[in-house]
Each structure stands twice: as structure tokens, then as C-alpha cells.
Design a protein around this nucleic acid. Structure first.
Length: 579
RNA sequence: CGGGGCGUAGCGCAGUUUGGUAGCGCACAUGGUUUGGGACCAUGGGGUCGGAGGUUCAAAUCCUCUCGCCCCGACCA
């Protein structure tokens, strides 16, 4: 491509509404332009990087026997009612009615549509297993789109589905996908970890996320650097810090006027924070039942764990709901003398042989010196949020917690969808059973964002060569001089003939402008054709390490091919690190 | 949905407090000088000041409503 004729609108200044690096650079390098909140157009450079990523995805998906299909984005709402997900996803699903007044939605994902195809076309165990995938736009009415392509309302997703006749086949399909995903992200040049995750609204038994560590990420992941344990904070477990307990000789009610927070009361009573119990009240969203969760004062609740335990989503009770239920304001709540209809759950990190203090269910009073035996417990489980520096359950080393970008998520769904929608087949014994499914997603745009977040420097993007919009840029300085443009033109056509993806900067611009732009858009290999042509030389510069080499004009092609090969093989080396 | 910020030329911003009829830098066009890391000089084009209503002799500026974008939180296959 010739820059002179191309749409590559680079910007000198950062856009005012961009916060994270990848967003700023995607705008400045002319990859994308915003249409509205969470809606972006891809310009030529951005789309080329997307196409490169998709090519890698297709190759790896085909390699595990995936068959590419394509499903409609416009869905009748009825099909979503069959699984109940029109309600589960009511907030996030975009809907409208068509001219015949039918309810239509824009698909936020495609399990229901896949299952519909399966129930119509799969009849025998002999038809299984299958892997079907598509690369398609998904639509989600996000409460808050943000960070460029990281959280958007319409986005390209590769979604794959495995259909199996038994659990062994599912395990195999799942493993294949895990390996395919490792291959895909490695080839895209990303650093990532595979973590245990919550399956959330998708349902299912097991799920793992592929995470890129980045400050721009919206998820938090706990890692153990020693043994490799890694889990999304939503499900992560840890061994808490050692703490001291004081002896409390007698059980009594203490007047604590206006003292509400754990810290305030602990200080007033002269107790360590861990000897206070936090009494949190939550409402289960479907059944609308209130629950009280008790945690040590130095711990935090993990809402995901609570909702997993209860089997439905939860939300904190509003202060007025609490007042209605308990007759006391938040801050003086506790399990003792709590209303009978409220379930009481206790985190397993609360020891049963120690004495604690918490609210007395009486305004301006706390109760001090009770144990877990002094009230009825409806459930004990792990409800704690892991915090940085706590210890790994496997090996005891300190865990690190950091933000990550979720680029892929794989699920063992089981029969949630096939059972609900009647997607069954006959097994070898002639018995009708539901298809066992898996679902596997990749956010294509997030691959680009992650790569930029990982490798960008002060001058701009530094693309891994595999997903770079071009592999090589020819920067011809002073194109008005025929001795320069002749050499550049010849190199340009020779590189194209050799199958190199090359951008030719043939603009009549000053050298500084061209160098800055080349750095900004991050093309891995730059050939500078300038004043050295009079000595029969050009320069080859690699973007990521700024290494520059003078090469004879006639050797340029061979040298470029060599460097290109090197850059590709470096990604294979990284592959081993990601293993 | 709650809190905060911002909408003025393609981009980045000043002007709003104190009302007087719109400006700077970049980009763009033309001419000239320059030419290896975002050049310089000159000239020029481009704006219903997000929108609607109101106050006023007069509104980018004051008032009311409304739309949009960004940030924090809530929420989030």
C-alpha cells in the first residue's frame, strides 16, 4: 500500500476523551474512530490488524477440527425465552420490535442459536462430536462502555461451540480449545495466563479465562509465581494472614454511640480488627430473600462467591431495607437476636474457638465476647475476597493480585442449553439424551488492545509482527529525488513479489514527520531510503529495539526476509514461556 | 442508576466569573524558503459556540429543559 493514497489519519495530539494507552494510540495511529460511546469504526490499519488476528484464529480453530459457520445477529426473543436467558440478560440485551410487532433482539452471544441448529440437525451419537465456530459481531448494552476497544457495545467475537455425546468427549474438546487458545494468543505475541474463573451467567461446570496482565484491565487475578496457581479474584482462594486474638472474659452488651465502622468500634473496644465480625446484609435477586454474611473485620466479602453459594445473583441491601428488616440501622447489625427469617452465613476464615464482637441489633449497642456457638448458622463456606500478599493454598508462597484483560474464556457448559431446548440425540443404546456442550470465546478487538498495552513505548505502538497491519514500512526520504524514489519503488515491488506485507511511505513529507508516523503506527521493520543511496546503501531498523543496520541495496530483500523470520520465531520462543 | 467533569473550526484548547456579536495552536489550501526525528515566512478557506426555549436593546457568556461524550462508583457473556 502506498501511504500517499491511503487513509492513515495520524494525530499529533492525544484525543481528549481517551484514558488508557491503547485507546489513545489506536486513535492517534489512525486505527479506529469513534461513532458513539462504545461504537467504533475500524480504519484500514486497524482493520488489517483485526484481519491478521482473525487469520491466526481461523488457522488454529480449523486445526482442532473447528468448522466455521455464520449465524444471524438478529434473533427472535422467543428463542431466548426457551433457556430463560431473556431474563438473565434482560439488562444487557438490546431489543426492539419489527414491523410485524415481533420481539427481536441483537444477539449478545449465540448459545441458543447453536443449540437450535443442533436440535434440528444432530440426531445420533454418530454425528458427534462437532466443533462449530464463527467470527461475528456481538451486541451488548453495556452499562458503561470504556477504554477504547476494551469494553464496547458492538464487538467482534470468535465464538466456538463443542457438541459432544459424553463427558469424555467434552473434556477432550475443552482441552483442544485450551491448546488452540494458547497457540492463538502466543502467535498474536501476547503474554497471558490461564486462570480458573467463574462461569457467571453462562452456567456450566468449569471455566477458565485467558488473561493478559495490564493496568488497563478490568478484571483482577490472583497469581502464585512459585507454583503457578492463578485464579480470577471472583473465585480465588488463599490462606489468610496470621492474626492475634485477645481474650474477652465475659459476654456483654456495650454502649457504642455513633460508632459504626469496624475500625471505629475496634478502637473503642480495644480489640484487633480481626476480632470484629462484619455483619453484611444482602438480597438474593430472584427469590428476594435477605441473607446475612459474617466475615472477620479484616476481610472483605466476595460477592461472586456468595452468589455462587446461593445459586443466584445478590446485591447489597439498601439502608432502608435493612432498617425495615432489623429495625436498626446499618452499623449495629449482628447475628444474635436477628430476625428468624434471615439466613446467617459465616465465612470459613472465622474461627469457631474465638470470641468476637459485632452489632447487637440495638441502636448504639455492640455485643462483645460471643462465639459462633451463640447463634444458629445456616451455612459455612468461603466468602472472602483474596487480597494481595496472602498465601497460596497449594504452596504457601505469597500471592500477587493484579488487574488483567480477559481475552478469552472457555466453558464446559454441560447440558444447560441442550436440555432446556430439547437438543437431544440417540446414544448407542437407543436412549435419548441431551447433547453435552462447551462454549469458547475470544474478543478479537481485545487482542489488539492487549498487544498495544503490553508493548507500546513513548513513540507509539510496537506491534508483534504477526498482527501488525504491515510487516515492513519503506520510509523514502525526499521522494522528489529520483535516485531515492527509484530505489524505494524497486524495493517496494520486490518486497510485494516476495510476499512481504509492505507499506510504502511515498508522501512528500519531511523526514521527521515520516519517522514519527512510522514509529507511531508501530510497523516492526522499517527500511529507510535516504541519503545513503548514493553509497548504494539503505537502513533497516527494527521498531521494538530501535536497532539499525546499513545494508547494500541489493541485499535488502534477503536481510528483510531474515529479520522477518527472526521476529516470527521469537514469538515461538515466547510460546514456551506461556506454556 | 448515583456522583463528578466536559461540549466553541477536522484535532487540542482559550474566551463564560463581570453579556457588547468569536480567538489561538495543529491540520487544510496557495506561494516562497527549507529538507535525516512532528520546519519557517506570507496569504487564505473553514464555526447555526451540542440542541430547544426563555431573560435582555444585545447571549458562547445569565435562566430552564434536553441531547451527547468522558471519569469514579453501581453493574457487567
Amino acid at each position: 500500500m502506498r501511504w500517499n493514497k491511503a487513509l492513515i489519519p495520524t494525530l499529533k495530539e492525544n484525543p481528549s476523551d481517551a484514558e488508557v494507552i491503547s485507546h489513545k494510540l489506536m486513535i492517534r495511529a489512525g486505527l479506529i474512530r469513534q461513532l458513539a460511546a462504545g461504537l467504533y469504526s475500524f480504519l484500514p490499519l486497524g482493520w488489517r490488524a483485526m484481519l491478521k488476528s482473525m487469520k491466526i484464529i481461523r488457522e488454529e480453530m480449523n486445526a482442532i477440527g473447528g468448522q466455521e459457520i455464520f449465524m444471524p445477529s438478529l434473533n427472535p426473543v422467543e428463542i431466548w425465552k426457551e433457556t430463560g436467558r431473556d431474563e438473565d440478560m434482560s439488562e444487557i440485551m438490546l431489543r426492539f420490535t419489527d414491523r410485524k410487532n415481533r420481539d427481536i433482539c441483537l444477539a449478545p452471544t449465540h448459545e441458543e442459536i447453536i443449540t437450535d441448529i443442533a436440535r434440528n440437525e444432530i440426531h445420533s451419537f454418530k454425528d458427534l462430536p462437532q466443533i462449530w465456530y464463527q467470527i461475528q459481531n456481538k451486541f451488548r448494552d453495556e452499562p458503561r462502555a470504556r477504554f477504547g476497544l476494551l469494553r464496547v457495545r458492538e464487538f467482534l467475537m470468535k465464538d466456538a461451540y463443542s457438541l459432544c455425546a459424553n463427558w469424555e468427549q467434552l473434556d477432550e474438546a475443552y482441552k483442544k480449545h485450551e491448546q488452540a487458545y494458547r497457540n492463538i494468543f502466543t502467535r498474536c505475541g501476547l503474554k497471558f495466563v490461564v486462570v480458573g474463573a467463574s462461569s457467571g451467567l453462562m452456567g456450566g461446570r468449569q471455566s477458565q479465562e485467558f488473561m493478559v496482565p495490564s493496568d488497563a484491565g478490568e478484571d483482577r487475578t490472583a497469581f502464585c509465581e512459585k507454583c503457578g496457581y492463578a485464579a480470577n479474584i471472583e473465585v480465588a482462594k488463599s490462606v489468610p494472614f496470621e492474626v492475634e486474638y485477645k481474650d474477652i472474659p465475659e459476654l456483654k452488651k456495650v454502649h457504642t454511640p455513633d460508632l459504626k465502622t469496624v475500625d471505629e468500634v475496634a478502637e473503642f473496644l480495644g480489640l484487633p480488627r480481626n476480632q470484629m465480625l462484619k455483619s453484611l446484609v444482602y438480597i438474593a435477586e430472584k427469590s428476594e430473600k435477605p441473607v446475612m454474611v459474617l466475615l472477620r473485620g479484616d476481610h472483605q466479602l466476595n460477592e461472586e462467591k456468595l452468589s455462587l453459594f446461593l445459586g443466584e445473583l445478590v446485591r447489597p441491601a439498601h439502608p432502608d431495607e435493612v432498617l425495615k428488616l432489623f429495625g436498626v440501622p446499618i452499623g449495629f447489625l449482628g447475628p444474635i437476636d436477628a430476625p428468624k427469617e434471615i439466613k446467617i452465613l459465616v465465612d470459613e476464615a472465622v474461627p469457631s474457638d474465638k470470641k468476637f464482637a459485632t452489632g447487637a441489633n440495638d441502636k448504639d449497642y455492640h455485643i462483645v465476647g460471643f462465639t459462633l456457638d451463640d447463634f444458629k448458622i445456616d451455612g459455612r463456606s468461603d466468602f472472602r475476597l483474596v487480597s494481595d500478599g496472602e498465601f497460596c493454598q497449594n504452596c504457601g508462597s505469597p500471592l500477587k493480585v493484579r488487574t488483567t484483560i480477559e481475552i478469552g474464556h472457555i466453558f464446559k457448559l454441560g447440558t444447560k442449553y441442550s436440555a432446556a431446548m430439547g437438543a437431544t440425540f440417540l446414544d448407542a443404546n437407543g436412549k435419548q439424551i441431551p447433547i453435552i456442550m462447551g462454549s469458547y470465546g475470544i474478543g478479537v478487538g481485545r487482542i489488539l488492545s492487549s498487544a498495544i498495552e503490553l508493548y507500546a513505548d513513548d513513540n507509539g505502538i510496537v506491534w508483534p509482527i504477526t498482527i501488525a497491519p504491515f510487516e515492513v514500512i519503506i520510509t523514502a526520504l525526499d521522494t522528489t529525488k529520483p535516485e531515492i524514489s527509484d530505489v524505494a519503488e524497486k524495493l517496494y515491488s520486490r518486497l510485494i513479489e516476495s510476499g512481504v506485507d509492505v507499506l510504502y511511505d511515498d508522501r512528500d513529507e519531511r523526514a521527521g514527520v515520516k519517522f514519527k508516523d512510522a514509529d507511531l503506527i508501530g510497523i516492526p521493520i522499517r527500511i529507510t531510503v535516504g541519503r545513503k543511496v548514493k553509497d548504494g546503501m539503505v537502513e533497516i531498523v527494527t521498531r521494538k529495539d530501535k536497532k539499525s543496520e546499513d545494508v547494500k541495496i541489493e541485499d535488502t530483500l534477503a536481510k528483510v526476509l531474515e529479520i522477518r523470520q527472526l521476529l516470527y520465531s521469537e514469538l515461538d520462543t515466547q510460546f514456551e514461556e506461556n506454556e
